[in-house]
Design a protein around this nucleic acid. Structure first.
Lengths: 160, 160
DNA sequence: TCGATATAATTCGTGAAGCGAACTATCTGG
DNA sequence: CCAGATAGTTCGCTTCACGAATTATATCGA
């Protein structure tokens, strides 16, 4: 209850501030790779597999018209491409170009490195505890597959 | 190490995804209060006290030209106001209007409520642990005073 | 088979956001 | 008193995000 070291902060404040922190790191890492944060996020999602525009909208929480623009700009930069969907000629599949693939692997690794550094002041045990607790929060809340881990969602579990 | 429940995720992934989650909740709460997330954040910062443009730029991590626009728009909506700084006639103090104060108290409380709900699946003990660990991360990384808690940074500790 | 409806995506117009460069006004140190 | 430094604003630009309207294709039912 003491105030000598600012005292404990509530869960909401802690979550909002850590989110602020992560956003800032993510934005800086994006910028240094010549990406906007949104384009970086798009690439990270596509790292797992190609998606249709509708699926991407659901994953990223964007209106479809917003997504058209984002994909346009990222495509203009040569990082993603639209391919016709053989099953449905209305639809497209958005996937990484080889340049986009190369860039996102670098961007993803570097961003992970920087985000991990944020918890460098914690012991390994505490860091694992934090990862586990946060992992349960994101699992409970059905966070979409943004920022997938390389071996996460093994092929057998993929639906598309 | 098993894969049956997706297995543990790394600290970086956990942080990025929880940040994604928090952003979404924050954005939705803002929207429902007639605010953009940026305007909501500005109001939350000003909840503690008025600040100059330069200070706000440092706190929010924005270029000064970006801040001019943000404060302009929020002022146009009647939520903040610029007041001359008696000590320095170049400078300005940005503070909440009474309408802005009323709105931000409501917005802040409601947003906290929603963010807290994200951890509803955790036991009280786990939630406290999570808050404490995240609290250390934000403290270690010098997160600016965004989303201050009502009794945090008591008047005696304020520098301005 | 044909027509109604649903779905996938794009286009268009609008406003918010963010930046850097250039500018104005004031303050401060020598 | 003048040469910087500092506080903010303005300007031009790009990105981002949305909703409404549109086009094209798919699908379902009669």
């Amino acid at each position: 209850m003491g105030k000598q070291d600012y005292g404990p902060i509530g869960i909401a404040t802690a979550l909002v501030r850590s989110s602020f922190l992560v956003n800032a790191v993510y934005a800086e890492s994006s910028r240094e790779h010549g990406l906007t944060p949104q384009q970086g996020q798009l690439l990270c999602v596509l790292m797992a597999q190609p998606y249709g525009m509708g699926e991407l909208g659901a994953i990223l929480g964007l209106a479809k018209s917003s997504l058209t623009g984002l994909v346009d700009r990222t495509e203009r930069n040569g990082l993603v491409q639209r391919e016709p969907n053989p099953q449905d000629s209305r639809a497209v599949r958005v996937g990484l170009t080889s340049q986009g693939g190369r860039l996102v692997r670098e961007f993803y690794a570097e961003t992970c490195r920087r985000i991990e550094k944020l918890s460098a002041g914690l012991s390994a045990t505490d860091r694992d505890t934090l990862a586990s607790l946060l992992g349960r929060v994101v699992l409970d809340n059905q966070v979409p597959m943004v920022f997938i881990e390389p071996d996460e969602g093994a092929p057998a579990a993929r639906r598309y």
